[in-house]
Nucleic acid binder design. Structure first.
Length: 470
RNA sequence: GUCCCCAUCGUCUAGUGGUUAGGACGCUGGCCUCUCAAGCCGGAAACAGGGGUUCAAGUCCCCUUGGGGACACCA
């Protein structure tokens, strides 16, 4: 008895892998892993004019980045066309399909008429029982399925529950286009069958397609796979995802500084939960995931929560892993590091960096005072509104103190600065803030002692002196 | 328009007839503080509306309203 679970993720390469597609892939992956099954990847590229190589690459890259590995080789639907046709002709031979000679104009009018009569704008079955005469044969026909006109189709969906459709609502959809190419409706059923798919997990925009496709299974007398139609994700405003709110390619999330584990963890909590638990390791997700627990209601994308989750993952990451991530991003951002020793300096401040960073971009920004040359630190006067004689006096004073520090370590540095402010009866803020701005070019940074320690004596003196000269 | 699905704080959600309706993000008051965060201690914030069923309803049923999806020679 072969009871292996096989799922598939079947994106069409007409756009990039967006966040909703990523979640569908994730649910497929978790479902199959949970049951020691397989997840296959099928690229639905039957629409040759809209499919692109770039989109395929983006999908594969996105899945790899997220760690959603698929089993076996990638299947390209376009390579199975002969098989799709074969099934179509079997359907024709068994009187479950027929040629339709309607023109596009004819179909448009048919739909307009149905709409004006308050009926569903489906194909009216004009050619179901007709044989074409000579004049009809000037148009190239499509092959349509002959759906049952009576009875009803029951869908027993793992997420949606039992859903009934009256068969008279189902239209005779197209199997083969007039150029002989198979449609998605046909191709995906044939491929799912041939691939031995036991469970289809896809967006609930396919729910009615499931009822329609079930006609093909019945006509072929094929065993139907179980289905799970998961709700879609919307933007924060409740509308369909668009460029405006994050339907960007999954790679864009990488560029925005999100960790793949953040994305995975955030997505799994959209529509699925395990009590009040917010954070899951991948292993926990696999163990706990049950498709039946997925909600039926759609959810919205919330970047605030995503960002919060990311900051938590950054904090929990190993220092050396963070360093590796910083290095990768420097490469991506084309930030040139002249001296390899800078990474040793960065490593020392990673504990502080992690505490203040919500994204990888924050890590980069907060450590940029180390990756930039002394000359590249510019102090805008509006930043230094405490720019006055007293400030300059203290900056001069502190340079002299720093020059005399013998053991360059954070304790020594902190003690020296503290005694300076005590001696001069000023608040730490009055010295630390100007110093911060002069040393980093920013009003926001990690702790001032960390800055000074990591920068090294020469750089500190150079940067302060450079400022004082101007 | 027809059919299908959905409905707990602003958002993600817990809840499976008896709960002070819980958590997380966000918002907010305070503490801490060299900046910004973080952290710690508090706070406001929800069962869409109306009918049933029941001793008892966020939980079950019906209607209304409001969202969403499908209705292509796209996938």
């Amino acid at each position: 008895m072969n009871s292996e679970i096989i799922t598939r993720f079947a994106p069409s390469p007409t756009g990039y892998l967006h966040i909703g597609g990523a979640r569908t892939a994730l649910f497929n992956w978790l479902f199959s892993k949970n049951q020691n099954g397989k997840m296959l990847l099928r690229i639905e590229d039957t629409d040759k004019t809209r499919s692109t190589k770039e989109a395929i690459d983006a999908i594969l890259f996105g899945m790899e980045w997220l760690g959603l590995n698929w089993d076996d080789d990638v299947i390209f639907q376009s390579q199975q066309i002969d098989r799709h046709k074969e099934v179509a002709y079997k359907l024709l031979d068994s009187n479950n399909a027929y040629y339709c000679y309607c023109t596009q104009i004819e179909l448009d009018e048919m739909r307009k008429k149905a709409a004006s009569e308050g009926k569903s704008p489906k194909y009216n079955g004009k050619w179901r029982d007709k044989t074409p005469n000579e004049s009809d044969k000037t148009v190239k026909p499509v092959l349509r399925i002959k759906t049952s006109e009576t009875g009803s189709t029951l869908l027993d969906d793992l997420v949606q529950g039992q859903v009934h459709f009256k068969n008279d609502q189902l239209d005779d959809f197209v199997l083969l286009r007039s150029d002989g190419s198979p449609t998605y409706m046909l191709a995906s059923v044939v491929d799912d069958f041939d691939m031995g798919v036991t469970d289809i997990i896809r967006g609930d925009d396919h729910l009615t397609n499931a009822a329609r496709q079930s006609q093909i299974y019945d006509a072929m007398q094929w065993r139907k796979p179980r289905t799970s139609h998961i709700p879609l994700i919307y933007g924060i405003d409740g509308n369909k995802l668009s460029k405006r709110h994050g339907a960007m390619a999954i790679g864009d999330y990488k560029n925005m500084g999100y960790l793949p584990e953040t994305i995975i963890n955030y997505l799994v909590r959209l529509g699925w939960s395990h009590g009040n638990q917010e954070f899951f390791t991948v292993g926990e997700m696999i163990d706990l995931f049950k498709i039946e627990k997925v909600n039926k209601s759609p959810s919205r994308l919330d970047f605030k929560k995503l960002t919060n989750m990311n900051s938590n993952y950054i904090k929990s990451k190993d220092n050396n892993d963070i360093l590796t991530i910083i290095k990768d991003h420097h490469q991506n951002l084309n930030i040139k590091i002249k001296d390899g020793d800078i990474y040793n300096q960065i490593l020392t401040i990673i504990p502080s960096l992690k505490e203040k960073s919500k994204t990888i971009n924050d890590l980069i920004e907060l450590s940029s005072y180390l990756t930039r040359d002394d000359d590249e630190i510019t102090v805008k006067n509006e930043l230094l509104d405490i720019n006055n004689q007293a400030t300059n006096k203290h900056l001069t004073g502190i340079v002299n103190i720093i020059k005399n520090i013998k053991n360059w370590n954070i304790i020594e540095i902190e003690n020296s600065i503290k005694s300076y402010i005590d001696d001069n009866d000023i608040k730490l803020f009055e010295l630390a803030q100007p110093l911060r701005i002069v040393l980093t070019g920013s009003t926001v940074s990690i702790g001032i002692y960390d800055i000074i320690t990591s920068l090294g004596k020469n750089a500190v003196i150079n940067r302060v002196n450079k400022y004082l000269k101007n």
